[in-house]
Computed example of a mutant assay.
Amino acid sequence: MPIYEYFCKDCGNHFEELRRFSQKDDEVQCPRCKSKNTKRAVSIFGTSGGSSSSGSTSQSGCKFG
């Protein structure tokens, strides 16, 4: 199961949930304030490539909108 990132619109908490793909847009409760006023975040990620010049790099973060 994939891990999805969420954002609570009430308290500003950023959190992750392990959910089935079919449940990714279902209602999620914030673990901090118990609000259901949450939104799934768009994750931005990078992978390490096969480049032999400078080693591997990776980025992670999320965008909320």
Rank of each mutant, 00 (worst) to 15 (best):
C30N: 04
T47K: 02
C33V: 04
T57F: 09
A41Y: 00
S53Q: 10
S52Q: 11
H14Y: 14
P31M: 09
M1G: 07
C8F: 11
M1A: 08
E27R: 02
V42K: 02
T47L: 13
E5D: 13
E16G: 06
D26P: 01
C62V: 09
G50M: 08
K36E: 04
S43W: 05
S22G: 02
Q23S: 12
S58T: 12
S52D: 13
R19K: 10
F64P: 00
D10G: 03
N13W: 08
H14R: 08
R19I: 07
T38G: 04
C8R: 03
I3G: 01
S52L: 09
D26Q: 14
C33A: 02
S54H: 13
T38D: 03
T38H: 05
R40G: 03
I44Y: 13
C11E: 04
A41E: 06
P2W: 15
S43T: 15
K39R: 04
S35V: 01
G61S: 11
S22R: 07
V42M: 08
L18Y: 05
S48P: 03
E16P: 00
V42C: 04
C33T: 06
G65N: 14
S35M: 03
Y6W: 10
C33G: 01
K24G: 00
T47I: 09
S53L: 12
K34Q: 12
S60H: 08
I3W: 04
A41S: 06
R19A: 12
P31Y: 08
R20N: 11
F7Q: 00
G46A: 13
C62L: 13
G61P: 01
V42F: 14
S53Y: 15
S22K: 09
T38I: 02
G65I: 11
S53M: 12
K9E: 15
N37M: 01
G49N: 10
D10A: 12
K34N: 03
F15L: 02
E5G: 04
I3E: 15
Y4W: 06
Q29L: 05
K9M: 11
K63M: 15
I3H: 00
G61K: 07
Y4M: 06
F15S: 00
K36T: 13
G50S: 14
Q59E: 15
G46M: 09
M1K: 09
S51E: 14
S48K: 01
R19D: 05
P2K: 15
G65V: 14
C62F: 14
G55F: 05
T38K: 02
K63A: 15
N37V: 09
G49P: 01
S60E: 05
G49V: 12
P2Y: 15
Q29C: 03
F15H: 04
V28A: 05
A41M: 11
R32N: 07
G61D: 13
I44S: 08
S58P: 01
F15E: 06
Q59W: 09
E16W: 03
R19E: 06
Q59Y: 13
A41V: 10
L18G: 00
T47A: 10
